[in-house]
Amino acid sequence: MNASPPGPAVLEITANAGVVRARQLVRALAQECRLSLVDQTKLITAASELARNTLVYGGGGTMTGAVVEERGRRGVRLDFEDQGPGIPDVDLALTDGWTSGNGMGLGLSGSKRLVDDFVLDTVPGRGTRVTITKWGR
C-alpha cells in the first residue's frame, strides 16, 4: 500500500527571500517525487520565473506546492497566486520575447514550455493564478 503524499506547503512570496524559498521547496518536492535531474531543473526554472512574476508584477502572493498522484502517475503541482493587476492580454503575455517590464520576456512562455501542464487564470484588476505540473517519467 502506497502512502499518500503529504498536504500542500504554502509559501508567502513578498520579497526576494520568498523567491529563494520557493526554489528550495520546489527542489525538495521534485526530489521527493523522484523527478529526473533534467526535469527537476526544468521545474525549478519555471517556478523561479513564476515566483518572480508573482513578486514583481503581482505585488507579492503565494506559492502552494505538493506532490500529487493522478491516474497512476506522480508529479509536482505548483500554484502561484497574487491579487495584482492581472494580465490584460494573455495571448500577448504568452508571446516569446514580449515583456511588460525590463525582463527578457521568457517568464510565462518559457515556463509553459518547461512543464507538462500549465493553466493561467487571470482577471484584470483581480489578480493572476498560474498552476503548473511536472509529471515523473
Score class of each variant (00 low, 15 high):
54 T>R: 05
53 N>W: 00
15 A>I: 03
81 E>R: 15
18 G>P: 07
121 D>G: 07
126 R>F: 05
93 A>L: 08
32 E>P: 01
93 A>H: 04
18 G>T: 10
71 R>I: 00
113 R>I: 02
115 V>A: 12
106 L>R: 14
128 T>K: 07
25 L>A: 11
56 V>T: 15
52 R>V: 08
135 W>F: 02
44 I>K: 14
84 G>C: 03
44 I>G: 06
11 L>R: 02
6 P>S: 13
18 G>N: 08
2 N>I: 11
12 E>F: 09
130 V>G: 08
59 G>R: 07
1 M>G: 15
70 E>F: 04
104 M>E: 11
119 V>P: 00
94 L>W: 00
1 M>D: 09
36 S>E: 06
73 R>M: 04
101 G>T: 11
68 V>K: 03
128 T>C: 09
101 G>K: 05
110 G>F: 01
88 P>D: 14
61 G>H: 03
65 G>K: 09
82 D>W: 01
119 V>N: 11
43 L>S: 09
25 L>C: 06
97 G>T: 08
49 E>L: 07
110 G>H: 04
115 V>C: 13
103 G>Y: 00
92 L>I: 11
110 G>Y: 01
19 V>K: 07
19 V>M: 04
69 E>Y: 02
51 A>F: 03
87 I>Q: 05
27 R>G: 04
108 L>V: 07
13 I>E: 06
5 P>N: 09
75 G>K: 08
48 S>H: 05
4 S>I: 07
121 D>N: 14
125 G>R: 03
29 L>E: 08
92 L>P: 04
17 A>G: 11
61 G>P: 03
112 K>E: 12
37 L>Y: 06
23 R>H: 09
83 Q>C: 12
21 R>Y: 05
44 I>Q: 15
119 V>Q: 12
48 S>A: 13
87 I>V: 13
64 T>E: 15
85 P>R: 15
54 T>F: 00
25 L>Y: 02
127 G>S: 10
103 G>I: 03
129 R>F: 01
23 R>F: 00
133 T>A: 04
108 L>N: 06
49 E>R: 10
9 A>N: 05
9 A>K: 10
88 P>F: 03
72 G>R: 12
75 G>F: 01
22 A>P: 04
50 L>A: 09
73 R>C: 02
38 V>E: 15
88 P>S: 14
8 P>Y: 06
60 G>I: 06
101 G>C: 11
15 A>N: 15
46 A>C: 10
123 V>K: 15
108 L>R: 02
59 G>Q: 06
74 R>G: 03
82 D>M: 05
80 F>E: 09
85 P>M: 03
28 A>H: 06
33 C>T: 14
23 R>Y: 01
99 T>C: 13
89 D>T: 05
45 T>A: 15
131 T>P: 04
17 A>Q: 12
129 R>L: 03
71 R>H: 10
26 V>E: 06
1 M>P: 08
44 I>A: 14
48 S>E: 12
105 G>V: 12
69 E>D: 13
81 E>M: 10
101 G>A: 13
79 D>F: 00
16 N>H: 10
90 V>E: 08
24 Q>E: 14
121 D>C: 08
99 T>Y: 03
39 D>Y: 01
118 F>W: 09
